[in-house]
Lab assay of single mutants.
Amino acid sequence: HITLTNLITEETTHVVMKTDAEFVCERTLKYFLGIAGGKWVVSYFWVTQSIKERKMLNEHDFEVRGDVVNGRNHQGPKRARESQDRKIFRGLEICCYGPFTNMPTDQLEWMVQLCGASVVKELSSFTLGTGVHPIVVVQPDAWTEDNGFHAIGQMCEAPVVTREWVLDSVALYQCQELDTYLIPQIPHSHY
């Protein structure tokens, strides 16, 4: 019994991606959610070859190996599938703050939850000092008015990073160091 759908849910078992011959794909929301959820992320060749051979072929032979941004053979989907007991964002409290493009905020929040993070909706909701690490995620190029994202640091004691930190961490299924993704914050004294 196979159901085809464009939506990823808890029940989804396989995410089928358009890939090149070496099982490398573009980074899409579907790709990120498939990895975050520990699903099989496979090339569409799995479907076409299975139909051709009239049997369901082994997914291992068709698993996506990499993507056009993070590298052609990083094995993120395999790492995620085999590490669902070791979520990459466990112990983190993440607030997805401000506008985002090409990806609804609720989907970004679901993605970080699938990776083990707790989501907070407001900067004031962080449970500071409880052994949980707060992180604010923003997408600077989605902000149309002044660079308000440079002043988020005044509203909460949390590192502010770009959305790329989430996307790179999920694609590779390895929590990336914050340093290269940090957004400089204007210190309090400048006000």
Rank of each mutant, 00 (worst) to 15 (best):
H1Y: 08
I2Y: 07
I2Q: 12
L4D: 00
L7S: 05
I8C: 02
I8P: 12
E11F: 11
T12R: 00
T12C: 07
T12V: 11
T13S: 07
T13L: 01
H14P: 01
M17G: 00
T19Y: 00
A21R: 07
F23V: 04
E26T: 08
L29I: 09
K30A: 00
F32T: 04
L33I: 14
G34H: 01
A36L: 02
A36Q: 00
F45P: 03
Q49C: 11
E53S: 10
L57G: 09
E59P: 09
E59I: 13
G66I: 00
G66L: 00
V69P: 01
G71P: 07
R72Q: 07
N73P: 03
H74F: 00
P77S: 06
P77L: 02
K78L: 14
R79K: 08
E82S: 14
E82V: 04
E82F: 15
R86S: 10
R86Q: 10
R86P: 14
I88E: 01
R90P: 04
L92R: 13
E93C: 15
I94Y: 00
C95S: 04
C96V: 06
G98A: 14
P99T: 09
N102H: 13
Q107R: 14
L108T: 07
E109N: 08
W110R: 04
W110G: 04
M111Q: 05
Q113E: 15
G116A: 06
A117L: 03
V120I: 07
V120R: 08
K121V: 15
E122P: 03
L123Q: 11
L123V: 07
T127I: 13
G131R: 01
P134A: 04
D141V: 05
D141E: 15
N147K: 09
H150C: 08
I152T: 14
Q154P: 08
Q154K: 10
M155V: 10
M155T: 05
C156G: 06
C156S: 05
V160L: 08
V160Q: 14
T162S: 10
A171T: 07
Y173F: 07
Y173W: 08
C175L: 14
L178P: 05
L182K: 15
I183K: 09
P184T: 06
Q185C: 14
I186P: 12
I186N: 04
P187T: 15
H188Y: 10
H190T: 15
